[in-house]
Write a protein that binds this DNA or RNA. Structure first.
Lengths: 175, 175, 175, 175
DNA sequence: GATGAATGAGTTTTCATTCAT
DNA sequence: TATGAATGAAAACTCATTCAT
């Protein structure tokens, strides 16, 4: 339903009908409409957030290559595409489209000190790079889950690696 | 209003009230609610599309550096931020959130042959790079207009340049 | 316009536009919407009422045959069809559709004493015949003006004459 | 409500209020306002059409007298008046005011061959009579349901019989 | 006079939510 | 617990009418 009309075109009654239950039953489980979407969203986040969490842990570990860590995340996101039911793809897509500015800010905040430490520069200096990396990885990752491009996956991952290496080269140089 | 409540929170009556006209007048100029938003959106597209157009023309010109062309676009988008009224930022933001998958596909389609020609490789080879560049530039550009990060602009543009150079290095190498 | 949508589908603005004048000008000549239709209607009534009037006068005259008088009216109504502009046809059609019950009552009231006098019976006895004659002539007359059937006119008039003669025969017999 | 103000004066909200339900409930059963009226109309047609149907069947049967068949219809229509709720009377009255030209054409088309067969004349010859009979019976019948005149019913039916006999006499004569 | 943009009361219609069964 | 008819606040939209230009 979301795929067809977007969030606006979805009514609680249509949700119930499509789900094969009565509208009353839907309200037995969800306090209001927004909660229905929130739950779908949460279900998806429970799949994605552990991956992101794990990636940040690897980033914080000096023994792990930054690009390797991020590439691992992209690979995992790409895997998610096949697993994810279609309706979950859309709901999270919708939600993310709105949530993203804040989300990216959070990622940037988390990544900045890590990069600063790794490359021995001020957080101020690292922030532009952190934002750009967050921005790129968030949207590329999201696209890999929701609308993967019609290109060879390994080719794409290699390109991402090059892009990230170019980005990080700047920090390395500025040391 | 869009800024405050998002599209859902905007009613035709509130539009009229805020505009200081009666609801009847609004409907004199717009056939329905959706048309109001469509017009705002179009107004914004009329600002952005010429920039994109011009960028593609420069990309097609071998005398112009690819990174320079894209950097010029990013700079222009960034300039747009200050000019753009807040409500236009919101409406186009909402609209783009939905349009983007197709839009990026179109950009990718346009960029692929250009990159292939420039780097003397097959379109197949160039496509992953084209998609990644489209993806990154579309979202970074959109963010620059709508939610610019709190970092030094020149610093950010320099980082973008490095990122792109890293990405293109892959194509250059594969020749 | 009336032909296309009926009265409901006609807005004052569309009236003005179709008339090639501004809505303001329309209101210069008519106090309100209903007056626009009333005027059209009146224009038509000014054509029909004299005919009806004249017919009633002939009916009251013992020297004139009842059937001849009514047949004369039908013939005149039929003539009106060709003269009447299409829009007038519709407007009066609309108006009559609603007005008719009262109108027919009035015709019946006027015809009853005339028939009673002519056939020497009580008004009570004449009333059913008067109503039936009014009913038939009103609707047949209206149809002749607005939606004439695809049959030979003289044939039709002859049939009307027979019908009326049958009807009046009843009164004559009951004497 | 229809009786009081006519179709225009009936709003969906007033319908709901009068019906003692909420406006939402009305829209649960009817897709839009027009459908409310259409349903009332249809309900009435379901009462009248079988009568008409049956009458045409009797007309086609040579064993049944033409006048008897039509008189039977008029009697049935007259009976309908008492049964019919006032609002149905109004709605169907309004609707019929518009539908009638076509409807009468249909009746005429159906009656013409029947009369031609019965009286052994060409359809061309029968058509004027068929139209006149359709016209008269349609409007008299409608009046009997919606606005019956203040006269003795049997008296009126007798007058109708005479009128029809006069009308048919013409066809009989022309043979 | 003529104009037609502006008005806004009054409609139609939607849809999240409730609650008696 | 499940149901789905009922609710009604709130939204979208219409159109007769006015009035400054």
């Amino acid at each position: 339903m979301l795929v067809e009309n977007g969030r606006q075109g979805v009514t609680t009654n249509s949700v119930a009908e499509r789900a094969g239950v009565s509208i009353g039953s839907v309200y037995q489980y969800f306090p209001d409409k927004q909660a229905i979407f929130a739950t779908l969203q949460e279900r998806h986040l429970n799949q994605v957030m552990p991956l992101v969490q794990h990636t940040f842990e690897r980033l914080a570990d000096p023994a792990v290559d930054v690009v390797d860590a991020l590439l691992g995340l992209m690979r995992a996101m790409s895997d998610l595409h096949t697993d994810l039911p279609a309706h979950l793809r859309v709901i999270s897509d919708e939600q993310q489209a709105h949530a993203s500015p804040d989300e990216i800010e959070r990622f940037t905040d988390a990544a900045t000190p890590i990069l600063a430490a790794r490359f021995g520069c001020t957080q101020d200096r690292a922030r532009a790079t952190a934002w750009l990396a967050s921005m790129s990885m968030a949207h590329v990752g999201r696209a890999l889950v929701h609308h993967p491009p019609a290109v060879d996956r390994e080719d794409l991952l290699a390109a991402i690696a090059c892009m990230l290496r170019g980005l990080l080269a700047k920090l390395a140089a500025s040391t």
